[in-house]
Each structure stands twice: as C-alpha cells, then as structure tokens.
Amino acid sequence: MTDENQRVDASHTPLATPGPPGAAPAAPGRARRLAAPVLTLAVAASALGYVAAVDPYEPGHYPVCPLFRLTGILCPGCGGLRSAHAFAHGDLITALGANALAVIGYFVFAGFMIVWLIRAYRGGPTPRLALAPLYWWGIGAVALIFAVVRNLPFGSALAP
C-alpha cells in the first residue's frame, strides 16, 4: 500500500539545485552581494558629483524650494544643495553654514554605506534601518526644531 503523501510527482520537482539533496541553496557570490551597495554608492557619488559641478549659487540651475518661494519660510532641506556643493569641494565650514542637518545626514549615509559594503564583502546580513517608531518620531522632532529655530532671529546662524 502506497501512502499518497509520499508519492513524488516528477512535474513538481525543483529545477537543478547545486549540492546534495536537501542542502540549502548556495550563497550568492561576492560580486552579486556587492552589486547593490556599489550601485547605491555610484548613484550617490554621481549625484554629489553633479552638484559639485553645477553651482547652486548660480540662479536657474536648480528649482527654488516651494515652501520658501510661497511663504519665505526655510524648510529643513533649504540650503541642502549649497551644503552638498561645499561638502563636495571639501569646505565643511561652509557646508555646515548652509545646512548643518544635511551634513549630519551625509555622515550618517557614509557610515551606513561603510557598514553595508563591509557586510556585503564578508557575506554578512544586509544592514536595515529598523528603528523603533519612537526614534523616527525623534528624528522628525529634530528636523522640525531645526526648521523652526533657523527661521527665528536667534537661529539665523542656521539659515543658509
């Protein structure tokens, strides 16, 4: 007597799997693991290179912030392109003066990319930005406070 659950239907067998039957599939090669972080880094470097080459201080190259255009209020991102331009040219003081929050973001991004590249090279897990909601609310609160303070007279040093 044959048990129905033990029958093997040839049409449902998996395609060729490397290794012995029942073994886990082979891990992707180093080049494949590095593809996503290297591509991300290339896109970010290209964007930074473009901002470094096309001066945001010259009018007409980039659009004006819609919030600033309509209300005259500086958003947390205002001055970000000028900050990126100065940062790309190695002028950290001017970059901080244009948008200090953006400079912090550049360093956080660089740190994340370093961790991602090292883990991809070694075959470790991909880093995730899995923060508790409280941290995301805290980041939002910092951005809001930054936006408010840079629009007040005593916070003019934070304005671009």
Rank of each mutant, 00 (worst) to 15 (best):
G29F: 04
R119E: 15
N99G: 08
L152V: 11
M113Y: 08
I118S: 03
I139W: 02
L96Y: 07
R33P: 04
A31N: 07
L129W: 03
A16V: 12
F146G: 00
G60W: 06
F146S: 05
E58S: 06
A141S: 12
P18E: 14
A26V: 13
V149M: 05
W136F: 12
L92Y: 11
V142R: 07
Q6T: 15
W137M: 09
S83E: 05
P56W: 04
Q6N: 15
P25W: 06
A120T: 01
N99Y: 02
F112E: 02
A102R: 02
A26Q: 10
F146Q: 02
A141P: 02
A84Q: 02
A36M: 15
A110V: 08
W136D: 04
P66F: 06
A26T: 12
F154C: 08
I104G: 11
H89W: 10
P14Q: 12
A100K: 02
V38P: 00
G19I: 04
A130I: 10
T94M: 10
A42F: 04
L39R: 08
A130F: 03
N99C: 09
A26I: 10
V54T: 13
P153I: 08
V108Q: 07
P63N: 01
S83L: 03
P21F: 12
T71D: 02
S83H: 04
A45F: 06
G138E: 08
V8T: 14
A45S: 13
L34I: 11
N5E: 15
P21T: 14
I93E: 13
L41H: 04
S83V: 03
T13R: 14
V38N: 03
I104T: 14
G123I: 03
G111F: 05
E4S: 15
A86E: 00
A53P: 04
Y135P: 00
V43C: 11
L70F: 05
G80E: 03
L158D: 02
A157N: 12
P56E: 05
G123C: 03
Y106S: 07
W116S: 03
A86N: 03
T2C: 12
E58T: 11
A84Y: 05
C65S: 08
H89R: 13
P76W: 01
M1T: 14
F109N: 02
T40P: 01
F146A: 02
R30N: 09
A24P: 03
G155R: 00
C75E: 07
I93H: 12
G90K: 08
R150W: 01
I139R: 05
F87A: 09
L92R: 00
P56V: 04
H12R: 14
F87I: 03
A24G: 06
H85W: 06
A16I: 10
G90H: 01
